[in-house]
Measured scan of single mutants.
Amino acid sequence: KAKLLVLLYAFVATDADTICIGYHANNSTDTVDTILEKNVAVTHSVNLLEDSHNGKLCKLKGIAPLQLGKCNITGWLLGNPECDSLLPARSWSYIVETPNSENGACYPGDLIDYEELREQLSSVSSLERFEIFPKESSWPNHTFNGVTVSCSHRGKSSFYRNLLWLTKKGDSYPKLTNSYVNNKGKEVLVLWGVHHPSSSDEQQSLYSNGNAYVSVASSNYNRRFTPEIAARPKVRDQHGRMNYYWTLLEPGDTIIFEATGNLIAPWYAFALSRGFESGIITSNASMHECNTKCQTPQGAINSNLPFQNIHPVTIGECPKYVRSTKLRMVTGLRNIPSIQYRGLFGAIAGFIEGGWTGMIDGWYGYHHQNEQGSGYAADQKSTQNAINGITNKVNSVIEKMNTQFTAVGKEFNNLEKRMENLNKKVDDGFLDIWTYNAELLVLLENERTLDFHDLNVKNLYEKVKSQLKNNAKEIGNGCFEFYHKCDNECMESVRNGTYDYPKYSEESKLNR
């Protein structure tokens, strides 16, 4: 008799109507990190870190770059004969040098303040090359056809396309004075040089004057150069050297050249137009028929994500570079809930034993079982409120962090190594801060989002509990077992918050 009662009780308990509160689960393989956990499985997430590029040089917003090819900045601007293909260059979106560009200054020497000139050019998007001192009329008392084997072109001695090597005419090199007034309405880049012979005999042979000088002056520039005559090792078949100089001439300003020898005179100059998204990159990537809004030396990035880990040097509207390998923000729920887990921000989770793959029309909802059958029903209101809140948060985070910009490298010469090392340390410090901030932001927001979901499920549970009161009992896994019969209409009233407690209280009292 006792065995019969136990079996009867078990049958009745199993047959009781139930309603459970749960949440969506799926077959997603997404994982995120939080402050407290690593690799948390979630139903949905968004990636904030771009880690792919196309490996190509592309047009930037429809404008092609200027590819210097086998030449570098120095060779292009001075007019190395091997860089003749660059003479027609007028406009570009950015400038590309190759790491091993070999054609710079063909006659050995240095372009002074080269690093600063590169910085200036990094904001130039177009130029006009014009004859600042016409070759045939500007130097009537001097020979202007100086050439050298060091600047050979097609097997013949030649010289820079933008400079003139002035030497004596006959047996004399009379003092020369020439000036140019900038009437271009924009900055003009003027380049010139000073020749330093290897011996007094060479000085006399070329310029006749043993104590020659070169003077260059404008409103913002004033220097006097004296040739340094000295024996030097042979470089590119030359014992002599040429140093090259430049200045930016403001609109309306005048530049005056005065010399008694050794002047490498300007022939062509450049009127410059600035462009905020221009820059110089060093890259071996090849040019393709493609378009982008962000270019790196590795390749083009076409992404609206706020961060990238491809390269710190970028041109155009680019994500911020960070050292992170993963920045994924959760938008959905835990896919593998932890039992009795309390989140960092106070939300209680884990009283549900598992997510439901059968509930596909919402994030949170119900599963019921009664004599009429069983089924899932999503709670659309709480789901939609959660979707709206999380979507707004993700968009806000992306908008705040998605300050796209150009980031170019800084140039230092060989004598500025300590400054370069200090600059690298400062840049590394800023990069570490950006990386830390980005990672911390994602970790915190992921923790908040998961706790937010847990709290929403808990609130749904409490909503049902407050309606049923003692007409049902909690069975410990997020479910309630009714003390009365609850048909589909009754189940719907529980879900929509209109459950009639008094209607079922007498039946429940008897069954309790």
Rank of each mutant, 00 (worst) to 15 (best):
S218W: 11
N243T: 04
I280V: 15
S158Y: 00
Y245M: 07
E102L: 12
Q204F: 03
L272P: 00
C106M: 14
L78V: 11
Q238H: 15
T167V: 06
C20L: 09
N220F: 00
S208N: 13
P65D: 08
G109L: 00
M242L: 09
L8N: 08
A16Y: 02
R154M: 10
K135Y: 14
A13V: 05
T98S: 12
K168A: 13
Y207K: 05
T226P: 00
R161S: 14
L8M: 15
I112F: 13
N103M: 07
P266I: 05
S123E: 14
K175A: 11
V124K: 00
N209Q: 10
L163W: 07
L57H: 08
V216I: 13
H142Y: 15
P197F: 07
K1M: 11
E131N: 12
N220Q: 03
S122M: 07
E228S: 13
S219K: 12
D30K: 12
L163R: 01
S93V: 03
K61I: 00
V216Y: 07
D30L: 02
V216T: 08
S152K: 10
S208G: 15
F257K: 03
L111D: 02
A217Y: 11
L57M: 11
T254A: 12
S215V: 12
V12I: 14
S179K: 10
W192P: 02
S200I: 11
T226M: 10
A105S: 12
K56N: 09
N211M: 05
Y207S: 06
V12R: 11
V188A: 09
H53S: 08
T282N: 12
V147I: 15
E37F: 03
S208I: 10
P266V: 02
R90A: 09
L272D: 02
T247S: 10
A265N: 02
A41D: 07
S215E: 00
N26Q: 03
V40I: 15
R274Q: 11
A217S: 11
S218G: 13
L86A: 09
K56H: 11
T34V: 05
K156V: 10
S205Q: 06
L248H: 00
N26V: 01
K59F: 11
F270W: 15
S122I: 03
L77R: 01
A217L: 12
S45N: 12
E82Y: 13
S219G: 10
L48M: 05
A105I: 05
Q67Y: 11
D84A: 07
L176R: 01
L189G: 01
R224I: 11
A269S: 14
D113N: 14
S200A: 15
A2K: 01
N72L: 00
L77Y: 01
L8P: 05
K3E: 09
S123D: 12
Q238D: 00
I255D: 02
D30Y: 08
Y107D: 03
H142F: 12
V147D: 09
S278E: 02
L68N: 06
N183W: 02
Y160M: 03
K169L: 09
G55T: 11
L86M: 12
S85D: 15
S137C: 00
W246C: 06
